[in-house]
Amino acid sequence: MNEQRKDILGMLAEGKITVEEAEQLIAALERDQPPTAASPTARPKGKKYLRVVMEFLENGESSRLNVRVPLQLLRAGVQLAALIPAPALDKANAALDKSGVPIDLTQLKPEQLEALVEHLDEAIVELEQPDGHLRVFCE
C-alpha cells in the first residue's frame, strides 16, 4: 500500500474526511498512477497543454498573447472541486449564475473532464480578422 493511500485511510480513521471523500481521493490517486509497461490498456501520452495564442494590432503596433495552461492543472481543479462542501458550491453556483456564467459545479466530474481532454486533441479554434487572429489548441 502506498503512502498516499495510508494517509487517506488515516484521515478517514481520524474522522477528518467522510467515507465518500476517501473513496473520491483514492479514485483520484488510481487515475493519476502512471500505467505500467505491461499494462494492455496503457495509452500513449496525449496532449499536455491547452494553448491560447492571439496576435493583434493595437494603435498600429503588433501585440501578442500566448497562454499555455497545463491540462493537469484542469484535472487537479476538478478533483479538488469534489472536496468542496455543498453549501459552498451552492454559493459559488449562485455567484457564477449572477455573473452570467450558468455552470453547475456540482455536476463537474473527473470522468467528464477526461472525455473532454481526449476530444481536445481534435479541436482547434481559429479566428482570423484583419487586425489579428486567435488560435486555441492543444499541444
Results as ranks from 00 to 15, higher is better:
133 H>D: 12
33 Q>F: 08
98 K>E: 15
29 L>R: 01
5 R>I: 10
84 I>L: 15
29 L>I: 05
36 T>Y: 06
120 L>E: 00
72 Q>R: 09
111 E>I: 10
56 F>Q: 02
43 R>Q: 15
12 L>I: 03
28 A>V: 05
7 D>L: 15
68 R>W: 03
115 A>N: 07
13 A>Y: 05
23 E>N: 12
30 E>W: 01
101 V>Y: 12
16 K>E: 12
5 R>M: 05
120 L>T: 02
4 Q>N: 10
39 S>L: 01
25 L>Y: 01
95 A>M: 11
122 E>R: 11
104 D>P: 06
121 D>F: 04
81 A>N: 15
87 P>E: 13
39 S>H: 12
11 M>H: 09
79 Q>A: 13
112 Q>I: 01
39 S>Q: 11
105 L>H: 08
33 Q>I: 09
133 H>E: 12
40 P>Q: 05
13 A>R: 13
84 I>K: 07
37 A>T: 10
46 G>E: 08
25 L>W: 00
65 L>A: 07
137 F>Y: 12
54 M>P: 00
136 V>M: 06
132 G>S: 04
25 L>K: 07
108 L>F: 11
66 N>M: 06
115 A>E: 14
77 G>Y: 08
38 A>W: 04
69 V>N: 04
17 I>T: 05
92 A>D: 03
4 Q>E: 12
16 K>V: 03
4 Q>G: 04
1 M>Y: 05
92 A>S: 12
13 A>H: 07
51 R>L: 10
17 I>Q: 03
13 A>E: 11
48 K>V: 06
43 R>N: 09
37 A>F: 12
84 I>Q: 09
111 E>K: 14
9 L>W: 00
83 L>V: 03
58 E>M: 12
2 N>K: 09
105 L>G: 06
111 E>G: 04
79 Q>T: 09
47 K>G: 08
92 A>V: 11
88 A>Q: 15
42 A>D: 00
60 G>E: 06
74 L>W: 08
8 I>Q: 00
130 P>D: 08
103 I>A: 14
47 K>F: 07
131 D>K: 10
132 G>W: 01
63 S>N: 12
104 D>T: 06
22 A>V: 02
32 D>H: 05
27 A>K: 13
43 R>A: 15
81 A>I: 13
139 E>A: 11
49 Y>T: 08
50 L>A: 09
124 I>V: 15
19 V>D: 10
119 H>A: 07
52 V>S: 01
83 L>E: 08
9 L>H: 02
30 E>G: 02
60 G>F: 07
66 N>Q: 11
14 E>M: 11
128 E>Q: 13
96 L>N: 01
75 R>Y: 01
131 D>W: 02
102 P>S: 10
58 E>V: 08
124 I>K: 13
18 T>G: 10
22 A>D: 03
84 I>E: 06
132 G>L: 02
24 Q>N: 15
22 A>T: 03
95 A>G: 01
30 E>S: 11
126 E>H: 02
31 R>M: 10
83 L>C: 03
87 P>N: 11
74 L>K: 04
129 Q>V: 09
86 A>Y: 03
77 G>M: 14
30 E>K: 13
62 S>M: 11
31 R>H: 06
74 L>N: 03
25 L>G: 01
139 E>N: 09
